[in-house]
Design a protein around this nucleic acid. Sequence first.
DNA 1: CTGGATCCGTCGGGATACTG
DNA 2: CAGTATCCCGACGGATCCAG
Lengths: 116, 116
Amino acid sequence: MDNDMQYCTVEPALDVIVGKWKISILFLLFQGTKRFSELQRDIPDITKKVLASQLRELEEQDIIRRVVYAVVPPKVEYSLTEYGHSVKPVLQTIHQWGRAHLEHMGLKKGIEETTT
Amino acid sequence: MDNDMQYCTVEPALDVIVGKWKISILFLLFQGTKRFSELQRDIPDITKKVLASQLRELEEQDIIRRVVYAVVPPKVEYSLTEYGHSVKPVLQTIHQWGRAHLEHMGLKKGIEETTT
DNA sequence: CTGGATCCGTCGGGATACTG
DNA sequence: CAGTATCCCGACGGATCCAG
């Protein structure tokens, strides 16, 4: 990876959003602080292990904050760091283009089918 | 994946840029039309098979165009479609945030180290 | 409740050889 | 030159069980 010195800085950003569930997690946390169990409830198809691992990655990247309460039963809250909020515009940009992309591909498919 | 109806449109966009070499390919094609061999030369660590597969994916997504010349030896040119150019701002947004992210993580690391 | 540990399947990507 | 065909491997994610 030395051929793309000039532009390889795209990739670190991708680490933050690439991961099967990271985007779901981020969107949920954009709404505010969530507990582990809340995230698990709102993302039904994710397992604890994977949720935990994705959260840990985001935490290491300083995108989210993990707060452990010394109570029983345990309580852990996750929230965006101040820095974490800065990914929002990135996600929105991708989101908008993604919508346009879907539409574009839909149109293309429609056109192709009308030619049959 | 029915829990994130509202925001799952982030993912299709990601398909375009996720892939170990897609970003490198896109950046090269932003410069203009390239032949297969040129791409391979400019991305030294990629193999033909992988280059071909990544190109095919981008082509299916209507991001790039593949033009085959009926000459011998064979000649194939790849270029961005008009639509493909629209990913540029997306990449730039990610790129900019990526740079800031690197800097941020660097600072964080520095701070942590000065505390030792 | 919030995880960690373990095992396992899948899939993207890589090495190599072959072809039109 | 521009690929395809095969085989291979490691990383990621999933299922299940265990623990503080």
